[in-house]
Design a protein around this nucleic acid. Structure first.
Length: 882
DNA sequence: TTGGTTTAGATATCTTTGCGCCTT
DNA sequence: TAAGGCGCTTTGATATCTAAACCA
């Protein structure tokens, strides 16, 4: 039988019921797991010197605490997950823990697809996708942090700088002069390599004005000179860098069989970049890619960013994350390629492993010369560079390999980074999280810059975890706490408030300002069904809620035509201002109002019946009339306050149930008073005061409505009398309880002392046993057994009873400490006060606070049996020889 | 591409006056 | 023997909201 959990007696501390868990539960951050990234194995992580991964708060893959783990079972583990330290402290709903059963077979279903053959995803399936998405996002974030650290590598810088032709070096110098970073007549400069290190790092920090304090004025006559230099650098890069491997791309959720094949292939076969994705396992391999000037388009951009940094220009590595989503759109559905007939040649992305850079044969086209070309089908970059102008502090996005306008100086050109159109659909390119990694190791969410018109949510809708509005417990409706999962995830990467740069300030005030979608002008433009549905000004009659009605004589503003041709339907459009809230007579009664005589209901709706009694009535009516019984709804204007007549001669009017409705204070008759104290009915009877029990509301359950009664209503002149009587009565009751408790304590002590004395006497008189018969008896006598144990004569025949007794004795000793600490161990006078009402003794053993009926302390000792750590006094006395 | 319709799941809201057994 | 306390129970129908697919 399932355990009984009372439903009505929910304490006020209980969290409110969960709201829309399926969508709105942003999971707690999942620890970053190494191995999620094929190109950054654990060795590469550990190889990297600490300073290399320059995440500001020392971000590291969390280490497991083995010591703790031993004591934690898997249920605790789930709990830990859901209450991760980075989860905001909200007394909100906790997701309900459920068993999750996944049956994996080799059919063509997806991991989270149609587990039980139903149409549409279930709650659990949604949860799986949300968790997959969140974990994948975090893996990608960490992967990029590592790549960003490699982009800072001095050797890589040196390699790339040395490759630059003399002409470009000259252009760089020209730019430095034009930007006022250098004087036109070059002084003998310290060699660049010496400028590395601390000075170079300082230079990159645009919050320090060191460079701009140098002599020379920037020449802005032809715009920012940096733009020209960047165009030259991009042209150089496009000519020099060869794309020889596939980059990251999104594939969607695969069928199980395909996924298994991919994972096995990835694990067991020799690494093949075409099938398994590009693998750059270490910083050395990254340097090698720089040396050879080849790799995936992603690596190409990463190396380009390194080149910009090598030239002492502030550059960020930007990554537009392409994670597995949490929806069921086409972008999340795996589309097998036409050439993909053999399973073993299937594409190599494996979602569960977060495998990195891979491709399927379809993405691999051949150029005219017969050389393989990678990712030609993807029209948008996944990685690019953001360059900060030292003059204007503006960010200039640069795509060194793909876009036709590589240097995006205007918002329109920046919006060209946002994947859209049929090609983006086909290649599943999305925009959801665009993250820029700075040279100091920090990262920043710069998604807004790349959204069309910088409007939220824009194209991120349905692809990025939305900001969740959590209702604040104990507040009115409409007061929310906003929980932004991605913001929480980004926090460890973000630059601290003290380290913010001028670039930060500038972009936060401009490019990164989120804009709200422009509201459509409903009055001027043509109506649509959706616009009318959402309108706060106008409404169609069919959109009115059950409790809403148009006021009599409401005039329509215009006519709206929905549908076309034969289906065209004309409907009048009304003002929202002409809509009023309506309620049934019963509902108004609950608000202390009654229907005005002769009022005609504005609306008639079917009766909703919950209680058995009401249901029977409704069914009866339906049988008689053959129609669904309706009830009228009235507007507030059609009601008035219920003002009961003043009481006469102290007699309280009562309703059919013998009580009085007190839903609101105005329902108490003049000359009467509500005394909401418990036990007042008995006192009224005793004092001979006319009274009626006060009904203040109802509780629903088990197809019943139970009235909530709070005290009584009596004549006002009797109020003082009743209250005084109640105080005296309460005081007497308290004293009675106190006496009773004291008596019980004394009795318990008496028993306890008797037990001790008996034990003492038994030990004195019978002492040790010598003959075997005594020994047998001894086995049943815990006192004797204890004596032996205590005197160090513990023998193998010591009975279980003796051990049990020793255990009990141990607990008793613990209790004894409490005796000393807490005034007697059984009950304190103060505690007697607090708990006298229900006659229970409250015992405190360490952290456990339990309520135990003292009756159980004697007799059969069931309380001791149940709890296992109480000293059973009566049992103790039973051991004494009779 | 936009807008309308349909479908389905999740969640919110409304509902309006016991009954029988046991202990005191 | 009457009065009062306590346990039982885990609703449920309907409305509303939301997302997604499909179609024009």
């Amino acid at each position: 039988m399932p355990p009984f959990v009372p439903r009505k007696r929910i304490s006020s501390a209980d969290p409110p019921p969960a709201k829309r868990q399926a969508q709105a539960e942003p999971p707690a951050p999942v620890p970053i797991i190494d191995g999620s990234d094929s190109s950054s194995s654990s060795s590469s992580l550990s190889d990297a010197p600490e300073s290399d991964i320059e995440t500001p708060q020392g971000l590291r893959a969390p280490e497991s605490d083995d010591d703790e783990e031993e004591d934690v079972d898997w249920e605790d583990a789930i709990d830990t997950n859901t209450t991760n330290a980075t989860t905001p402290i909200v007394a909100g709903p906790q997701p309900e823990l459920q068993d999750l059963e996944l049956t994996l077979d080799k059919n063509e279903h997806h991991v989270t697809d149609l587990l039980d053959g139903k149409k549409g995803p279930s709650k659990i399936e949604r949860q799986i996708r949300i968790q997959s998405h969140c974990m994948h996002v975090q893996c990608l974030l960490f992967h990029n942090a590592i790549r960003n650290a490699w982009v800072n590598d001095k050797k890589v810088h040196e390699i790339l700088r040395n490759k630059l032709p003399e002409g470009i070096h000259k252009e760089v110098k020209k730019w430095r002069i034009a930007s006022g970073l250098e004087l036109p007549e070059p002084k003998p400069q310290p060699p660049k390599s010496k400028k590395k290190g601390k000075q170079a790092r300082k230079d990159k920090d645009w919050s320090a004005d060191t460079q701009r304090l140098e002599p020379g004025q920037p020449d802005m006559s032809r715009g920012d000179p940096l733009i020209g230099l960047l165009k030259i650098l991009v042209a150089y890069w496009r000519k020099q860098f060869r794309i020889t491997a596939p980059g990251l791309r999104k594939h969607g959720y695969r069928p199980i069989a395909s996924l298994e094949a991919v994972i096995n292939d990835f694990r067991n076969e020799e690494h093949d970049p075409v099938r398994h994705g590009e693998r750059i396992a270490s910083r050395d391999e990254f340097r090698s890619a720089a040396e050879r000037m080849q790799g995936s388009r992603d690596v190409g951009t990463q190396l380009f960013t390194a080149l910009i940094r090598a030239l002492d220009i502030e550059a960020r590595l930007v990554a537009s994350l392409q994670p597995l989503g949490f929806g069921w759109t086409k972008a999340e559905t795996y589309t097998p390629s036409k050439t993909e007939t053999e399973p073993e040649r299937a594409g190599s992305e494996n979602e569960s492993e977060g495998s990195e850079e891979d491709t399927t044969p379809e993405e691999l086209s051949k150029s005219k010369k017969g050389k393989p070309q990678f990712d030609k089908d993807m029209p948008f970059p996944i990685y690019w560079t953001e360059v900060a102008s030292p003059i204007t502090h503006e960010i200039i996005p640069v795509d060194p390999l793909i876009l036709s306008n590589p240097v995006a100086t205007t918002p329109e050109l920046q919006a060209a980074f946002e994947p859209r159109g049929a090609k983006a659909d086909r290649t599943k390119q999305v925009i959801c999280y665009v993250v820029a990694y700075s040279a100091d190791g920090t990262a920043k969410d710069v998604t807004t810059r790349y959204l069309k018109r910088r409007t939220w949510p824009g194209k991120t809708k349905g692809l990025r975890m939305p900001v969740e509005k959590i209702p604040l417990p104990g507040h009115r409706r409409g007061q929310y706490f906003e929980f932004d999962w991605f913001r929480v995830i980004m926090r460890p990467y973000m630059r601290g408030p003290n380290q913010r740069t001028k670039v930060d300030e500038h972009e936060d005030a401009n490019d990164l300002q989120r804009k709200q979608p422009e509201k459509k002008k409903t009055a001027q433009t043509t109506d649509t069904l959706q616009s009318l549905r959402q309108s706060t000004e106008f409404v169609l009659e069919r959109f009115l809620r059950r409790e809403e009605a148009l006021i009599p004589g409401a005039q329509s503003v215009r006519i709206f035509t929905s549908g076309k041709g034969d289906k065209a339907k004309q409907e009048p459009v009304f003002r929202r201002a002409d809509v009023v809230k309506c309620m049934s007579a019963e509902s108004w009664h609950k608000e202390g109002r009654q229907i005005l005589p002769g009022a005609v209901p504005l609306k008639r709706v079917p009766i909703r019946s919950v209680t058995l009694r009401r249901k029977r009535e409704v069914d009866e009516l339906q049988r008689e009339t053959g129609e669904k019984p309706m009830q009228g709804l009235y507007a507030r204007d059609q009601t008035e306050f219920i003002i009961p007549p003043p009481i006469v001669d102290g007699i309280i009017p009562k309703n059919d149930y013998g009580n009085i409705d007190c839903f609101v204070p105005s329902m108490i008759p003049r000359g009467a008073a509500h005394v909401p104290l418990p036990g007042t009915v008995r006192l009224c009877k005793k004092l001979g005061i006319d009274h009626a029990e006060a009904v203040t509301g109802f509780e629903f359950g088990s197809k019943m409505a139970v009235p909530v009664i709070q005290g009584v209503v009596i004549a006002a002149e009797n109020e003082d009398l009743l209250r005084d009587a109640w105080r005296i009565d309460a005081e007497e009751k308290r004293k009675r309880e106190e006496l009773k408790a004291e008596k019980r304590i004394l009795q318990t002590w008496r028993k306890f002392l008797f037990g001790l004395r008996i034990m003492e006497r038994v030990q004195e008189e019978y002492g040790a046993f010598d003959n075997p018969g005594d020994r047998e008896r001894d086995e049943c006598n815990p006192f004797a057994a204890r004596k032996k144990k205590g005197s160090g004569q513990h023998e193998e025949h010591d009975s279980e009873a003796a051990v049990e007794f020793a255990d009990e004795h141990h607990h008793f000793e613990e209790s004894s400490h409490n005796v000393l600490d807490h005034g007697g161990g059984f009950l304190l006078p103060g505690e007697a006060d607090a708990d006298a009402d229900d006659g229970l003794i409250v015992e405190q053993h360490h952290d456990t606070r339990r309520r135990t009926d003292p009756a159980n302390l004697s007799g059969d000792g069931s309380a001791a049996e149940e709890t296992g750590d109480e000293y059973d006094l009566d049992s103790g006395s039973e051991y004494a020889p009779g």
